Simulated assay, not measured.
Amino acid sequence: MLQLKSISLLQFKNYTNKVFQFNKHVVGICGKNGVGKTNLLDAIHYLCFTKSYFSKSDVVNVQQGTQGFRIEGLFERNEQDETATCVLRETNKKEFLIDGAAYDKFSQHIGRYPCVVIAPDDAVLITGASEERRSFLDSLLSQINPEYLQQLISYQKILQQRNSLLKSAADTGKIDEALFQILTQQLLVPGNFIFEKRSQFLVSFLPKVKRRYTEIAQREEDISLLYESRLLETSFEALLAASQQKDRALQRTTTGTHRDDILIQLNGQPFKNLASQGQRKSLLFALKLTELEVIHEERKIIPLLLLDDVFEKLDEDRISNLLKKVCMENNGQVFITDTNSDRLRSHLDQIKADFELISL
């Protein structure tokens, strides 16, 4: 059981000092654009991931004209209450604490409060570059497997060092050959670990996404989802050895798990080229709701589900169908933002959800 009972915001985005209480399974957050609905969801995301969902920099989330912010949430986790606190100091140093005890590393917190977000800009997961789908996959696996997160951090650190060495060599015309070979070897352990965990996981995950897509679309379509990685054909060691000359010329590591992708096709063609807006949205929901299902299965805790303005350009039937799945078939806590409180109330009444509405 995971429930967020309350949250307090100090100097966070447009909130000077505000406390919210959450008492129901479903929490609707209503108000006009610009009043802070998305900001409230982002504060919840901070408590789950130690960072923003919508911006890479902590500083941009500090209320204008002030220094630092503080977010504090009271959670019930496995029938025990605990307080999570995220503080950005005036010096821009960030701290994260559970019941007053600070983490040595923020990565230790990932997975404690599992969370799934669906937001309008998430459409790039379908239409964007491979980096978007890798990020989605890495976030999911990091929430269910702490070792995966540590191996991913190690891989990215070594990759950055190797790329910096290649760029420096291009600038100076010289390369520390011994260091280059050491970094190349060091990539192998985390790289192979990441590949093995991704390939094992996606064997069961991708068919689940396809089934969920069919449920949401309410009809069979010729859609396929495949894991795309050069490591499926050749060992990572052999790939790195074969690409050394190319890496030196392009000043970056051109092969590895940082190049993997999930190939999505419709009728044998790239999905993003053929799919309608409704099909893209259906696939996005399928990916995210399958993520929620898998995290629940693996962690035995139902993740918090944050839905930000997801009803845009959906017809009434699709809205009702979506709400039924996320509010009635899912027993976890759900937070939903909408500009139209009457519409949201009507739909939640219709499915007999246990809900409350917060007006901003």
Rank of each mutant, 00 (worst) to 15 (best):
N267W: 01
S243C: 01
E196N: 11
G268L: 02
R198L: 08
E312L: 15
P190I: 07
A241L: 10
A286C: 09
D176N: 15
L287S: 08
V310N: 06
Q245T: 13
L187H: 08
E312T: 15
Q200S: 15
N321I: 01
N267E: 12
Y213L: 05
L225I: 11
G268K: 03
E297G: 06
L225T: 01
Q218S: 15
A242N: 11
P190V: 05
F311Q: 12
L231H: 01
N273V: 04
K281W: 03
E221H: 07
F180S: 11
L250E: 15
L183R: 04
F201C: 03
A286R: 05
P190S: 05
L283P: 03
Q265N: 07
L292I: 10
A249G: 00
Q186G: 03
L206T: 02
F271K: 03
D315G: 09
F311V: 14
L284P: 08
E220M: 06
Q277H: 12
D317K: 09
S320R: 15
T184L: 06
K208N: 13
S204G: 07
G191I: 07
D308V: 09
S199G: 01
D315N: 12
D260G: 09
Y213S: 00
R280A: 04
D317Y: 11
K313F: 15
L306A: 14
V310A: 05
E233C: 01
V209W: 00
V209G: 00
T184P: 06
E237T: 15
E298L: 09
